[in-house]
Design a protein around this nucleic acid. Structure first.
Lengths: 204, 204
DNA sequence: AAATTTACTGAACAATGTTTATTTTGCAAA
DNA sequence: TTTGCAAAATAAACATTGTTCAGTAAATTT
């Protein structure tokens, strides 16, 4: 059926339209401005229309999140390509930290906000993050196979590395680094340094 | 002046009243239920009254956060008392992780939510967290002085340890651990294991 | 007892996510 | 081309938010 195909295509196009508007709102005006009404305004539709394509805001944010993750994966593919697995691991971490610090609102949506995760139910998996996390996991696996890091289990290594990176980034984004008496630039340097230092500590 | 003293005491008492109600709301009904109106309802005042004691909700949440931090410090003082600095460090981390995993809403308020931090301005310090962080920092300092951990700078060690702990806890609270195909209990075990493992890695 | 300051209220405002009755639109059949 | 119908979009409404403010009650001072 050609017609229902086109209908489906139109629907996807409208969704893309909505996602793009939301994304733009997020990056340029900040999260607080990304209300359903303002997104609707931007694409020149009424607020109700968005609910013909998404059952609620969480579902929409989940799709925006997906878009963000594909940008992160792109970044990995561009910046983390060293043949040596450990160096590649360093590149991944560096890209990840920079991505977080330069795009705090987007990082928030991807790794901190609860609302986009509301529709990822128990025993379902979080598809959005699969590619990005696989990129890390594969690299970690190679590192372990070649005995480049002091870990035995891939998942534990990946979790620890992710944990360290995310911890520092999210403390900064959440303004908790105000406890340190450093200015913003010093803090960012400290975060990069801490992650590098950690990688050196697990190196063997 | 005795009268203005009593006035001040009354004011503090009312604040305590509000904080307690908010805290109870937070822990028992969850963050979403902790609206100004519901807090006002609980203490049997009108919503407007709360604004005679707090200029906005952020300021109120900041005070609730303070209460939470004093509970965390109490926990440290109860559970992290080993004479050996490294063992004490392990106790601190263990208490911190357990506190986070058992009180996700409170942990959120303390370490994740932006709103209570809105009134902590640039070049001001985040008083609420001082005692808790000092507890960690002092312990770390002793560890470094006795060459028990592979770190030279206190602040970098503290930041790294905090970063790792917070990273893992907040990923779990923010539902990001759904990427791992483990159930909730397994994930919690993995978090404890990762933190312990990290401490062993920095041990020297 | 009267006047004044303080404490509190309750209604209103603006903004949010969401639902629904109604209208507009697009398209196939007559 | 006109008619009828289904799909798409809207405008208005609802229930919540945080917050403000004019008015009222209470407490204190004169």
């Amino acid at each position: 059926m050609g017609i229902s195909d086109r209908k489906e295509r139109d629907k996807q196009e409208m969704r893309k339209n909505i996602i793009d508007a939301a994304m733009h709102m997020f990056t340029h005006e900040g999260y607080e401005s990304a209300s359903i009404r303002k997104i609707a305004d931007k694409i020149e539709y009424s607020p109700g229309t968005i609910y013909l394509y998404y059952k609620d805001k969480d579902e929409l944010l989940y799709d925006v999140q997906a878009e963000c993750f594909s940008k992160l994966v792109e970044l990995f593919q561009k910046e983390a390509t060293d043949a040596d697995p450990f160096k590649r691991l360093e590149q991944i971490c560096h890209s990840y930290v920079r991505f977080g610090l330069e795009n705090p609102e987007i990082y928030d949506l991807m790794f901190m906000m609860k609302s986009p995760m509301k529709n990822v139910h128990e025993h379902e998996d979080w598809e959005n993050a699969n590619d990005a996390l696989s990129y890390l996991a594969k690299c970690v696996q190679e590192c372990i196979e070649k005995s480049l890091i002091r870990f035995e289990h891939v998942w534990m290594a990946a979790l620890s590395i992710w944990g360290m990176g995310h911890g520092l980034i999210s403390l900064q984004i959440g303004c908790r680094m105000k406890i340190m008496d450093m200015d913003s630039d010093q803090i960012k340097e400290a975060i990069y340094a801490s992650v590098s230092n950690y990688l050196n500590q697990i190196k063997q």
